[in-house]
């Protein structure tokens, strides 16, 4: 089976702070993987390294065998943990932009999903509610036929209904040969959609296991087990 994301001894330090500490990780295609850890455990750093918004201090990360480059960016669909789109842009501008820059952008798929949200194509982002904005960002991200989806905290700070919408959008839109990496600290909400769980603690991977196996062996939900591992 193809590995879409491989980290070898991947480390990143900011000044004297070690955000990622010799991480070894292999993610296979066709899996939805939870990147789970409390705030500051290195989740965002790992995702930024994979999308080449950061360069490793040590070690390497590979996307489908390649070091991060413009070519890997073409097959990675990245959802940052903030509003990253220019807020003056209207839906129609955004669709045009994604079509312009990403050869794998499926505009029909995006239009179908946007249609069910009942958003006017002439509304600029800045006039949308926070929840709608996040949905639009997710729709754009999931409308690409990428090999690797990197979703950084896609469900943080949205109401439960929007959360359901977001998770259902993820499971019904990712390509079967793709890997989806979802970083979050809200484990109970995502664990039903996960194949595998990766626990990050102070920049180290402390667990990488299939969710079924984890429930089988511990008799606990991922959420319960997480609380045990990370209890203060």
């Amino acid at each position: 089976m193809m590995e879409t994301l491989v980290c070898n001894e991947l480390s990143k330090t900011y000044g004297s702070v070690r955000a990622l500490d010799h991480v070894d990780l292999k993610l296979e295609e066709g899996k939805i993987v939870g990147l789970l850890g409390p705030n500051g455990s290195g989740k965002t750093t790992l995702i930024k390294l994979a999308s080449r918004l950061l360069v490793p201090t040590e070690g390497e990360v590979r996307i489908c065998g390649e070091l991060p480059s413009p070519a890997t960016k073409a097959i990675v669909s990245y959802l940052p943990d903030r509003n990253y789109l220019p807020d003056w842009m209207k839906i129609k501008d955004l669709l045009e932009m994604y079509q312009d820059f990403y050869g794998d952008f499926d505009v029909q798929r995006a239009q179908e999903m946007l249609g069910s949200l009942n958003i006017d194509y002439d509304t600029p982002l800045k006039n949308m509610s926070k929840g709608t904005k996040e949905k639009v960002q997710l729709i754009l991200t999931m409308s690409r036929h990428a090999k690797l989806y990197l979703l950084d905290e896609p469900i943080a700070g949205v109401d439960p209904a929007a959360r359901d919408y977001i998770l259902k959008t993820i499971i019904s839109n990712y390509d079967e040969t793709a890997t989806v990496l979802i970083s979050t600290h809200l484990i109970a909400d995502v664990e039903n959609v996960l194949d595998e769980a990766v626990f990050l603690k102070e920049g180290k991977v402390v667990l990488h296991q299939s969710v079924d196996e984890l429930r089988d062996t511990t008799g606990k939900s991922v959420d319960e087990y997480f609380r045990e591992v990370f209890k203060c």
Binding site: D164, N192, R215, D216, K220, S221, D223, E224
Partner: peptide
């Protein structure tokens, strides 16, 4: 969301 699942056994079961 979706169906209700109990916490202690694998979802597929």
């Amino acid at each position: 969301m979706g169906w209700k699942f109990s916490e202690d056994t694998p979802i597929y079961l």
